[in-house]
Amino acid sequence: MIAGKKMLTKKQKAGRFLIRWEMLLMYLLIVLNLVLLIMRPDLYLKPGTLASMIQSGLNICPMVLGMSLIMMMGDVDVSCTANMVVCAYATGKLMEGGIPPAIAVPAGLAACIVLGAVNGFLVAYMGMPAVITTIATSLLYRGMVRVALGTNVLRVFPDFYSTVMWEEAAGIPVCMILYLLMAAVFVVILHKSRYGRALYMIGNNATTAEYSGMNVRKIKMITFMIMGFMSGLASIFYIGRLGGGAQSATGNGEEMTVIAITALGGVSAAGGSGGIYGPVIATFIMAVLKYSLSLLGMDDNGRKIFIGIILIVAVIVTSTERGIIDDLKENMRKKRQARYKN
């Protein structure tokens, strides 16, 4: 056997590509669309349905991108939606007071970055485990908004919020365009920068990363701050979908959807593997799935269970994904050895 890197033929490379997790997700997305097409062609082919499906599922999309980074490190951030509400509160309150969007929106985003930094500080520098920290900060942030806002509702938001979620440009929903642009940025960050490489290493083994000289704390801090920023951006999408209204309970429960989508996208919650493509496709899968199930007549409770089951199955298969490819490698190697023996 030749030691070192095996040279793969073009065919083998193509084969490998086709069974990557991301491709499996694409197949799933296509299958879903086909199922809906076959069962309710009248609805599927009706103009606007596809756009509706996409728009309904993209209201949390920025958080998925941020969460991918966080989960890649092996952490998790349950406080993302609470963060989003704080941003909405900040922006909404300022605009209510007459301050123009040009200042109100960045102010809200800045607040989110600060909250993200708090998370980062507690996790990276104080050594608190991410799970329990973010559960606690989630209660804290949302609790603060509750105290500040009480029973009131914030109604004044910039018009572009609604435009993002409800309009289309050249037939493609604006939110989708923005999402793909943001995803492209994240791909660059993850795959082309030192920071991205560091993330992978930390996710794989934080101790080793520390010993090889990386400033693990700083990187974790940065990641949480990015997550905070994305949560703030998410408020634009989420509130836009609601046509510009926010209260303290807005978005409660969505963080689990975000985690589910990211896990479905192949980012192992233990850290160290996955990319951005997976979660992006998974976002669309979740959007189409939720919508189709309802169009096909399932009631809301049934839908929730179904998605719960899918979540588990998806994550199980993800965690055995390496197993699939490794098993295939094993099989190929065994076959080749058997051939050489004869």
Binding site: K46, S52, G251, S294, D300, R303
Partner: peptide, 23 residues
């Protein structure tokens, strides 16, 4: 009947969206 399981506005918005599509 499009009643939602979660007591939230966004769940109802989703339900209404689906009903609109259904015509």
């Amino acid at each position: 009947d499009g009643t939602v399981a979660e007591t939230s506005v966004s769940a109802q918005v989703q339900a209404i969206d689906e009903l609109i599509t259904e015509g």
